[in-house]
Amino acid sequence: MPYLLLLLCLLSVNAHAVATADCDQDALCATEQELHLSFALGYGQRSNPLYGGEALPLVLLPDVYYYAEHWFFDNGKLGTGWALSEQLQLSLIGQFNQEKGHFQKWFGGNAFQFNSTVPGINIIDERYGPLQVSVQEIRKRPTAFDLGLQLDWFSTGWQLQGALWQDISNTYQGQHATLSAGRNWQSRFGDWQLGAKLHWKSAKLIDTYYGIDNNEPFYLPRYNGKASWQPELRLSWQRPVSERVSLLAFLRYLSLDDAMTDSPLVKSDNVTTWFFGISYRFY
C-alpha cells in the first residue's frame, strides 16, 4: 500500500523547491544528497471555514526534506525529478490530498472523534436563511492520495511553479491544479518571501468533500459541488540568530469562491493561517 510508505507525508508544513542542476545562493532550491531536519516552536493557528470545524493550533512545526540522486521527500511530497535545464525542473510527485484537514483536526491520525449522540435537527425556515450544517452531522470524508506533475522555474530571487494533480486512490476521481509565483529578498531585518498562488479544484473534488448528497441524513439540504477557483497570498519572514537558530513567521490568506461558500457546510469565505516562533535546525 502506498499509504504505508508515505505516512511521513502527513507532517507537511511547506514544500521546498526541487533541486536543479545549478543552484545559486538566492534561488529557492535544495542541494542533492542533502538532509534537512528542523523544528519551529511557537504559536499560530489555521482557521477552519466549516460549521462545527475546529481551528488547528500550530505549536511545533517540523520541516523535513531529503534530496537523493533519483528521488526526494519534501514536507509531504515524495517524488522524482528531471532537470530540463539549469533553471527548469520537472517532477513526478505524490502526496495525500489536504482537503480532509478541515474535517479532521489531527489529519492522518486514526482516532477520529465521532459525535457519540445523534445531533439535534434544527430546521430553519427558508424565509429566514439557509440551513447551516455542522461537520458533526455528516458522514466521514475520505482520505485521498494524489499523483501530480510539477514544473518549477528558478531565477535569482524568483520561482514560478505549476502543478496538476490526479486522484489515484479512486476516492473523489477528480483533479486539482495550482499556479504560483514567489519572490524572496534579503534586508537588514531578515529574509523575506512573498508569494501568490491560484488553486483550481474540480467539481468532483468539491462535491466529495463539501457536497451534501443522498447518503447524508435526510433532513440536510442537498448540495452538488462545482469547480472552484481559490487565490492565495503568502508572506514569510526569517531572521537567523545563529548557525542553527532562527526566528520565523508566516501569514497566509486563502480566499474561497461561491463553489465553496454556497455549501451549507461552509461558514467563512477564507482560510487564514499564521505562525510566529523560533526554529532549531538539527541537520
Rank of each mutant, 00 (worst) to 15 (best):
S187G: 15
S187T: 15
F189R: 12
F189M: 13
F189I: 09
F189A: 14
W192P: 02
L194F: 08
G195P: 06
G195D: 10
A196L: 13
A196P: 03
A196S: 11
A196T: 12
L198T: 02
L198Y: 02
L198N: 02
S202D: 14
A203F: 08
A203S: 15
K204Y: 12
L205G: 09
L205R: 12
I206V: 15
T208Q: 07
Y210A: 02
Y210E: 04
G211I: 06
N214I: 11
N214K: 15
P217R: 14
P217D: 14
P217S: 15
F218P: 12
Y219H: 15
Y219Q: 11
L220W: 11
P221L: 01
R222T: 13
N224E: 14
N224F: 05
G225S: 05
G225V: 04
K226A: 12
S228T: 10
W229R: 07
Q230C: 06
P231N: 13
E232A: 13
E232W: 11
L233A: 14
L233R: 07
R234S: 13
R234P: 01
L235P: 00
L235G: 11
L235M: 15
S236L: 01
S236E: 11
S236F: 00
W237C: 10
Q238Y: 09
R239D: 05
P240N: 10
P240R: 10
V241L: 15
S242F: 08
E243L: 10
E243P: 01
R244I: 03
V245S: 13
S246E: 01
S246D: 04
S246I: 00
S246Q: 09
L247Y: 08
L248C: 04
A249C: 04
A249F: 01
L251T: 06
Y253D: 02
S255K: 14
L256N: 12
L256P: 12
D257H: 03
D258R: 10
D258Y: 03
D258H: 10
D258I: 03
D258N: 13
D258C: 04
A259C: 08
A259L: 09
D262G: 11
D262I: 03
S263P: 01
V266Q: 02
V271K: 01
T273L: 04
W274E: 01
I278F: 01
